[in-house]
Structure formats: C-alpha cells, structure tokens
C-alpha cells in the first residue's frame, strides 16, 4: 500500500481525507487507483497532476516506482515561463 497526500482543495472529492491509501507500485497505478476509489478526483487527474516523490517533483512519469517507504505527494501540473 502507498499513502498519497492530497492538496487541500482536492480533499472535498476524497471524503475530506488528507491522506489516501491505495495499492500501487508506480505513478500510473496510483492515479488509476485514486480515481477508482474517489471518482470525484477524475477531472483533476485528467487535467494533469504532478507527483512529488521524496521531495523530487515528477510531472508525467507514469512508471516512476513508488513504495510504502516513499513520501508521495500529489501536486497540480505546473508550467513555467
């Protein structure tokens, strides 16, 4: 199981939870499991999310390995200037 932290305004779509626990071994599985558990998250996931894994931000990398020992934080997808 992986614990993933949702940012504040996402929690309304996950029964108010800050941390959601899902079965996943990579970013893709995590997103799929999140949407399955909380379908209200689907529009944001479709728009795009980033993932901070132990403090390093990944923007799209589906197959980034994650495990129970990692700190996994969901973030909005970001752009620069």
């Amino acid at each position: 199981m992986v614990r993933v932290k949702l940012w504040g305004s996402l929690r309304a779509f996950a029964d108010g939870e800050e941390w959601v626990e899902v079965e996943a071994s990579n970013f893709k599985e995590l997103l799929d499991a999140l949407v399955e558990k909380h379908p209200g998250l689907a529009p944001q996931v479709k728009r795009g999310v980033s993932l901070a894994l132990d403090g390093v931000i990944y923007r799209e990398a589906w197959f980034t390995k994650i495990g129970p020992e990692n700190e996994v934080i969901l973030m909005p997808y970001m752009v620069g200037g």
Partner: peptide, 13 residues
Amino acid sequence: RKGTLSSYGPTFN
C-alpha cells in the same frame, strides 16, 4: 531546509 515540510506538500531534500 532539508527535512522541512514545505508549504506545498513535499518534504524538502
């Protein structure tokens, strides 16, 4: 600094 829980979620390296 390293170990700070950042204001946007992740813990800093």
